[in-house]
Design a protein around this nucleic acid. Structure first.
Lengths: 193, 193
DNA sequence: TCTACTATGCAACAAAATGTTCTATAGGAG
DNA sequence: CTCCTATAGAACATTTTGTTGCATAGTAGA
């Protein structure tokens, strides 16, 4: 049995609006009333879909926070693979809802286990991708087997997040080049410690 | 003319409670009603001090977000100076209200110019401290003059914040040692690029 | 097309949170 | 002791939040 198309349409329109409100005005303003006014959907219908304010906010979070699962390239030289992957991450932070919403999720995570789960899952994927790139480089003998991969992973991902979420500075091609340069340089000189 | 001691006492007690609520339950629960119930101060008095919910929350934020201004040590070897400074930062993130509240400030910053200002000011101080450490090391000839200091600064600060705020992982002595090791190693091998 | 089902809109309602205003009281300053 | 002012408390208006019943309209299936 298929779902009633009206359910789907309502949910979609409501979450679209909730997402926009979340990004533009912050989590405080994501309410049934605000979504109703933005969409024309009646409050009672919204309450039927999401029984209270919290479930509505959670739904908005979860919808945005679904990560685009990106399989890493591991064929080129390390520099090329790394640049491609971080370029995708940069694009996601700059141009997708996730980039705008991440700060709110981060904050929610400090008091909400659900949001914390969203983040750790998301990060696990990120780290796995970057790790695959380094592992391939080690397999190819391009970098030593004993480079501190864990730390490199963290550097690779921490810096773009820090710049974007905390410092509110631009992530652009120029920065990306420098960042990749530094990572490669570390990977190639920091073995055997 | 001095301020009425009752004003001071009320403000302090109220903000103490607001701070605790902010950390324990999140910004959503910082309300005049909640603070009144927690402190015994009447709602009307609280409204006299902070005319609306937003100003109360802002006050709670600003009170916590005041950074402890830490002058860096620049006399020892680089490794020692760096470790001392990052150890203080680690301590602040682990054990002070700032560490618990930072995620909320980060989130607020995405829609609130005031919060954004708090963060950038705070970060400017952090960066200046770390920069002083590197500059001293360059003066002593301990590291080359052309190491990419800007990037090193960012690495030094980004990683602890990322671990704490986003990954919710522990900052401990073991991690600190590794982090400082890596930073020194980068500083000493990455000149002239 | 006809029928049974169900999601929606709407209005009325209850409950709680959010602000406002007034008055009596108590603490602090000179 | 006296004036000033901050607070407590209650009464009140307003907005937000959540609930319920009912008429309407869209959907699926025969």
């Amino acid at each position: 049995m298929k779902e009633d198309p009206r359910l789907i349409a309502t949910r979609q329109a409501a979450l679209d609006a909730a997402q926009k409100i979340l990004m533009d005005e912050g989590v405080l303003h994501v309410t049934h009333g605000a979504v109703s006014k933005a969409t024309g959907i009646s409050r009672s219908t919204l309450y039927r879909h999401w029984p209270d304010a919290r479930s509505l906010r959670d739904a908005a979070f979860r919808r945005i926070a679904t990560p685009p699962n990106i399989p890493p390239k591991t064929d080129g030289p390390l520099r090329s693979d790394l640049r491609w992957l971080l370029s995708v991450l940069m694009g996601a932070l700059n141009d997708t809802p996730w980039g705008q919403i991440a700060p709110q999720v981060v904050a929610a995570a400090s008091t909400d286990a659900e949001a914390r789960l969203v983040i750790t899952e998301f990060m696990k994927d990120r780290f796995a991708s970057v790790e695959a790139v380094f592992a391939a480089a080690i397999d190819r003998g391009e970098i030593a087997a004993d480079v501190p991969v864990e730390q490199l992973l963290e550097l690779a991902v921490a810096v773009p997040y820090f710049r974007k979420l905390i410092r509110h500075e631009a992530l652009n091609e120029e920065w990306l080049d420098k960042h990749v340069d530094l990572l490669c340089s570390i990977a190639k000189t920091n073995s055997g410690q």
